[in-house]
């Protein structure tokens, strides 16, 4: 447990076209709720989630955003300082996958390679109406250094895995980052892009040893 005992704070942003299920993914993950009749998201909001991954405590702030393109005019404030981005498309909607590609370009341009990108095909419960090929989506993700996931917020599929995997990657990035800036500095405080790595007392492992929400 000596290697653990640290806590990380990460900001994750959900982006993607309207109606692909961004809000549903966050609600399912943070509150284990699903509501197929919720209203259009117009104002960004965020929910938080605490995890314990192998003794490392992670505080996630997950930002949900409005999908309609013109709301992007309200600024890049939502993804600025993000450690991870979840780019969501609807597997039944080819256009929404094209929008993901635009987001990849914009994020890479604005934030470089530091941000952990996830591309998420949501609504796999509607597999019969699929319009985006699995192979194409996975190949595209690989080509831009993103990881691809398949989820259904409705059936609660793939969502825990998505966030857990993303957290592990963000921890890794943060640690690489920290090492690059000199091993000795244990009090890293606020690292670049707002990652906070704070040494603290080793914590008793939770029984599962994996992650626990709070």
């Amino acid at each position: 447990a000596a290697a653990g005992g640290r806590s990380f704070s990460f900001k994750v942003v959900l982006l993607g076209e309207g109606c692909v299920g961004k809000t549903s993914l966050v609600l399912r993950y943070c509150e284990n709720k699903f509501n197929d009749k919720h209203i259009t998201t117009l104002q960004a909001s965020f929910l938080t989630k605490k995890l314990n991954i192998g003794g490392k405590r992670v505080n996630l702030a997950i930002w949900d955003t409005a999908g309609q393109e013109r709301f992007h005019a309200l600024g890049p404030i939502y993804y600025r300082d993000s450690n991870g981005a979840i780019l969501v498309y609807d597997i039944t909607d080819e256009d929404s996958f094209q929008k993901v590609k635009n987001w990849v370009k914009e994020l890479r341009k604005m934030l470089g390679n530091e941000i952990c990108l996830c591309i998420v095909g949501n609504k796999i419960d509607l597999e019969k109406e699929r319009h985006v090929s699995v192979q194409e989506a996975e190949m595209y993700a690989e080509s831009v250094g993103a990881k691809h996931y398949h989820t259904s917020a409705k059936q609660n599929k793939g969502i825990e895995e998505l966030f857990l995997d993303l957290c592990k990657r963000m921890i890794e990035t943060a640690q690489v980052d920290e090492r690059a800036r000199g091993n000795g500095s244990s009090q890293s405080g606020i690292a670049r892009r707002g990652v906070q790595i704070i040494d603290d007392e080793p914590q008793a492992q939770s029984s599962g040893g994996c992650c626990s929400s709070g």
Binding site: G18, C19, K37, H38, I39, T40
Partner: peptide, 9 residues
């Protein structure tokens, strides 16, 4: 798609 998301309540 916005029709079902206007006042679902």
């Amino acid at each position: 798609q916005n029709m079902n998301r206007t006042f679902p309540d």
